[in-house]
């Protein structure tokens, strides 16, 4: 077995040591433009993102809402693909130590070749991998292969996931568990799902790694609400929208505001766990 890099674990632990949730920020590679792609990542990192999720644009992003769809189509039109994304990742990781989780649909990775992908992604400094359309049990051999790689294989749990299955996923997830706050595609929402706290509490008990919550979180207020119950807060579409509207400057400002909001919330004592 290859050694895990554990940079994600260390990052969550550092946030916990500051008695706050970690901020996980998604963006689509090569957005708002291929030339501005690296600056966008640097701005998000420098503004306080603890972990970055770097989305590989795909022609058929069926788990994504309008913002990330549009960013993907735009990036593809301008020639961004998985190979380009890996080059961007390599440039970024030579400049910053913020851990990066590659976020992709299965097909671009299969087409690139799984072994080659793992090699190149590890070489480029990726910390983790998240596959939107590879749920637990869909392809055990492939899943085991990724689990054995140096990349943390981050798994998703949905509100529709049965409790028993959620436990199995939580036990297998590496780096962190991505809890989807509500049914639906990615995208900013005004209201967060009700009943988030008990769900997340149960997952934190079943999981060996931190639990981060995403989908629909767009404002500092929502981020601080989630920060009160989870180990991490994931923001995606809102950041992509900010990049579309005002580039790295605007997105950086949003991330700073999110980070400030999260920093004001302490994880309540009953949620601190001694295992991490």
């Amino acid at each position: 077995m290859s050694e895990k890099r554990e940079t994600i674990r260390d990052t969550f632990a550092a946030a916990e040591a500051e008695a706050r949730a970690a901020l996980v920020v998604y963006t689509t590679a090569g957005f708002p433009s291929p030339d501005a792609g690296l600056d966008a990542l640097l701005a998000l990192s420098d503004a306080g993102a603890d972990v970055l999720e770097l989305g590989v644009p795909f022609s058929d992003p069926l788990a994504d809402g309008p913002a990330i769809q549009a960013s993907s189509f735009r990036a593809i039109e301008r020639g961004v693909d998985l190979a380009w994304t890996l080059d961007l990742l390599r440039e970024f990781t030579t400049l910053r130590s913020t851990p990066v989780v590659l976020f992709t649909y299965l097909n671009p990775m299969l087409d690139y070749g799984v072994e080659r992908f793992l090699d190149v992604a590890v070489g480029a400094g990726a910390a983790g991998l998240l596959l939107t359309d590879l749920p637990l049990g869909a392809d055990p051999r492939l899943e085991e292969r990724i689990e054995r790689s140096p990349l943390d294989f981050v798994r998703l749990i949905a509100p529709t996931t049965t409790p028993d299955r959620a436990k199995r996923i939580a036990a297998r997830s590496q780096g962190f568990v991505y809890y989807i706050s509500r049914t639906g595609v990615t995208g900013a929402r005004r209201d967060l799902a009700h009943g988030l706290a008990p769900e997340v509490r149960a997952l934190r008990q079943a999981s060996a790694v931190p639990v981060a919550v995403g989908f629909g979180i767009s404002t500092p207020d929502q981020a601080s609400e989630v920060a009160g119950v989870a180990d991490g807060v994931i923001v995606g579409s809102a950041v992509v929208n900010a990049l579309a509207e005002g580039g790295a400057l605007r997105a950086g400002r949003l991330v700073r505001d999110l980070r400030t909001a999260i920093g004001k919330v302490s994880l309540s004592a009953n949620q601190q766990t001694s295992t991490r």
Binding site: T132, G137, A138, T160, T161
Partner: peptide
Amino acid sequence: LADGERFGPFGGRFVPETLIAA
């Protein structure tokens, strides 16, 4: 995989986790 889930290597369930229960 499980009976009826694949036709030789083809088929499967490569979907977002949210749909698994359904």
